[in-house]
């Protein structure tokens, strides 16, 4: 198993919006083994509150040395993480779980909502690097333009040309939900593979639209999780037929084929 426990030194801590941060860490073992869609368990404090590490998707790797994470302050743990400054170290476990499956896919559409956009950037870079010619459409959604912050520009900077935006409040791009962009931008003459990550209702809408269009869909799920390494069994999700053993996000995912899991 290519999993590592590393003492990772903080290289950069950037505040992108009032709530969103980008953290760059030196973690060579994790950086050189990570695949798009995989995650790390990140220590936020050496005290016991909060006790557990936080599962965070890998935003990108930089060379074979650095791992970049993007996270939003949602509670005590992420707030403590945001207070850490360059030179400090935290423990990281990773890379964990299964990433996106790109084998044999030619037309790929990435659909991200909110912080779910974080792992899709890593994925977009990989598609642009490996698919010849690269066919990668990116649809991004958030509540407001401010919440999208610099992300649309980041995708354009690496060479994504087909990028479309949606905001709940209409401050940028389509006024509405990102899933509503799918029918318009996925040309039916292509066989699309849709890779999505974001809030549950958003992904549910994306999955439903993909079914309608007959496109394959891969989803990256997020759950409560204590260990990230398949020991606690806390991250159970039901299978699509609601029977049989539960799937576990940390080991069977976090990326699943949309039809494997139940959309309740």
């Amino acid at each position: 198993m290519n999993q590592f426990e590393e003492q990772a030194k903080i290289v950069r801590q950037e505040q992108l919006t009032p709530e969103i941060y980008r953290l760059t860490l030196k973690a060579p073992d994790i950086a050189s083994n990570a695949r798009p869609g995989q995650f790390v368990m990140a220590q936020t404090t050496t005290s016991y509150d909060p006790l557990l590490r936080r599962p965070l998707s890998i935003h990108q790797t930089i060379g074979n040395e650095q791992v970049q994470l993007m996270y939003k302050i949602v509670g005590k743990g992420t707030r403590m993480l945001s207070a850490l400054t360059p030179g400090k170290t935290i423990q990281l476990t990773g890379p964990l779980g299964h990433g996106f499956d790109l084998a044999g896919k030619d037309a790929i559409c990435l659909v991200g909502g909110g912080m779910g956009i974080a792992p899709l950037y890593f994925l977009a870079r990989e598609i642009l690097r490996t698919n010849k010619p690269p066919k990668c459409t990116v649809l991004l959604g958030a509540r407001t333009a401010a919440e999208l912050g610099p992300l649309p520009r980041d995708f354009m900077d690496i060479g994504v040309t087909e990028i479309f935006l949606a905001t709940d409040d209409g401050t940028l791009g389509h006024h509405g939900f990102v899933a509503e962009l799918l029918p318009k931008h996925l040309a039916p003459e292509n066989k699309w593979t849709v890779c999505t990550c974001g809030p549950h209702p958003m992904m549910k809408a994306v999955v439903s639209q993909c079914r309608k269009q007959g496109d394959e869909c891969q989803v990256s799920l997020e759950t409560m999780m204590a260990c990230g390494i398949s020991a606690c069994l806390g991250c159970a999700v039901p299978r699509s037929d609601l029977s049989g053993p539960y799937l576990h996000v940390c080991k069977d995912g976090p990326v699943f084929k949309a039809d494997e899991v139940a959309w309740l």
Partner: peptide, 20 residues
Amino acid sequence: RRGNPPPRIVETAGGMLNAI
């Protein structure tokens, strides 16, 4: 055994609750 439906764990002050 299939175990309990999710959510199965929750973090609490200095600990965690589980119902796996």
